[in-house]
Amino acid sequence: MGISPLNSGKRGDMLQISRWMKKEVISISQNSTIRQAIQLFIDHHIGTLPVVDEDHHLVGILRLQDVIDMGMPDFIHLVTDFDFLHGFGAVENQRPDPQIFEKQIEELVREPVSVHEESGLFRTAALLHKHALRDLPVVDHEGRLVGIASHVDVGVALLSYWIS
């Protein structure tokens, strides 16, 4: 992970992601069920669960949105424009088959995208943008999860720097 000139010195520390990330990360083990993941989302009111192995290495990302998508009507993915649809009719009362909650999270887990703790804010913001993520896991040199930065954390940090 390269360190940009901005990251050196005192001002550089201000622009490092480790300065702004949340250090208490709620993560999930890769062998969990979808029901366990749902419970974590509910209990902690969060939108992203980094998926880790036994040694706390980041192995994937589970997004709240991907879990919600299981219950979305099929047409959402097929029709480009449904703004004219004011009510979703029968879909509103639909719930996914409870059996799918007992499945392993594996099929919903995305490839791990992360940022190194010494990385700059801009690189973090760019990765969030590129991978359409709301939160980005932060890892150390060994790829172990050490924090998580939301797009609000990163955005607010950048804005504070801009007006400082």
Partner: peptide, 9 residues
């Protein structure tokens, strides 16, 4: 696709 939409609602 619109047929699927109508059927679902």
């Amino acid at each position: 696709p619109v047929t699927i939409l109508i059927c679902e609602i």
